[in-house]
Structures are given as structure tokens and as C-alpha cells.
């Protein structure tokens, strides 16, 4: 039997952190297991932008990716690696539920683990409802961590 993969949705919130802690727990039990943590930056190709925003878009995108790594993924990766986990961090732009499910299929994951409540404000829009949508549409089992 090959390596088991878990996908964990992270958004910098406590619920996200609890989802990762749960994934670590399961990974220990599963043995040969890889955890892929994914941070999704909400983005839609259908929003309307000014010409100036368009011209700055690439720069902003790079900044957003760097920030996600710096603030959310890297600290999680460092501590998980120190604990001896096989872990990888991914940042993507798009719709969180779609991206996480697509990643699960891409990596042939056994399970998606996600926090139920995201951070407040804008980020709440990213993960608020995402768990619910994943539960109904995901192609692999989903565990929602309260």
C-alpha cells in the first residue's frame, strides 16, 4: 500500500490550526502519511478591476503568495517538520472549495481536513461556507473540525 495523503485547508485561523493538529494525529496513526497544507487566496477571474489594478496585478499576486507563506504556511511547516512529519505547503488563487477538492484529486488524497470557522472579516468569506461546500461536493471524504 502506498503513501496516504491528507489535504488540510489552512487560513491562519484557530480552526485551521485545529484541522492541522487533527491531521497530524491521524497521520501518526496511519504511519506512512503525507500532509499537504493548502492556503487559498480568494480570487475570481470574473471580478472587474481598473486598468491600474490590472497593471499592478502580477506584483500583488507575488506579494500575496509571499505573505501566505510567511504568515501561515511557513510557521506551520517548520513546526510540523520539526515534529518529524512529511509535510508540504501550497498556495493557490481561486475558489477555496474548488481548489482544495482539485488538489485532493490531483494528489490522490485519502481525506480533506478543514476547520469549520475561519477568521473574521474578509477571510471569513474564504473559509466560511467552504467547509459546507466541500462536505457536499468533494470527491474524497471530508472531516470538518469544529
Amino acid at each position: 500500500m502506498g503513501q496516504t495523503t491528507f489535504i488540510v485547508g489552512l487560513d491562519g485561523s484557530d480552526a485551521g490550526a485545529r484541522a492541522l493538529a487533527f491531521a497530524k494525529d491521524r497521520a501518526k496513526a496511519a504511519g506512512d502519511c503525507k500532509i499537504v497544507i493548502c492556503y487559498v487566496i480568494e480570487w475570481s477571474p470574473f471580478t472587474f478591476q481598473t486598468a491600474e489594478e490590472n497593471a499592478q496585478r502580477h506584483k500583488r499576486r507575488e506579494n500575496e503568495i509571499a505573505m501566505a507563506h510567511e504568515r501561515v504556511l511557513d510557521p506551520a511547516l517548520t513546526s510540523a517538520k520539526a515534529e518529524g512529519f512529511d509535510i508540504e505547503g501550497i498556495v493557490r488563487h481561486g475558489d477555496a472549495a474548488d481548489i482544495i477538492d482539485a488538489l485532493a484529486r490531483e494528489r490522490d488524497a485519502k481525506q480533506i481536513m478543514i476547520g469549520r470557522v475561519g477568521t473574521k472579516g474578509l477571510k471569513a468569506r474564504i473559509f466560511g461556507g467552504v467547509a459546507g461546500r466541500l462536505a457536499t461536493t468533494a470527491t474524497v471524504p471530508v472531516t470538518i473540525i469544529p
Partner: peptide, 12 residues
């Protein structure tokens, strides 16, 4: 994904 899409450039 995250770059300016064709639709966005058209709309702008």
C-alpha cells in the same frame, strides 16, 4: 490563477 484574466482585461 490570480493574474489578470482575459475577461478582466476585456471588461476594463
Amino acid at each position: 490563477a490570480g493574474e489578470v484574466s482575459h475577461l478582466q482585461a476585456l471588461a476594463t
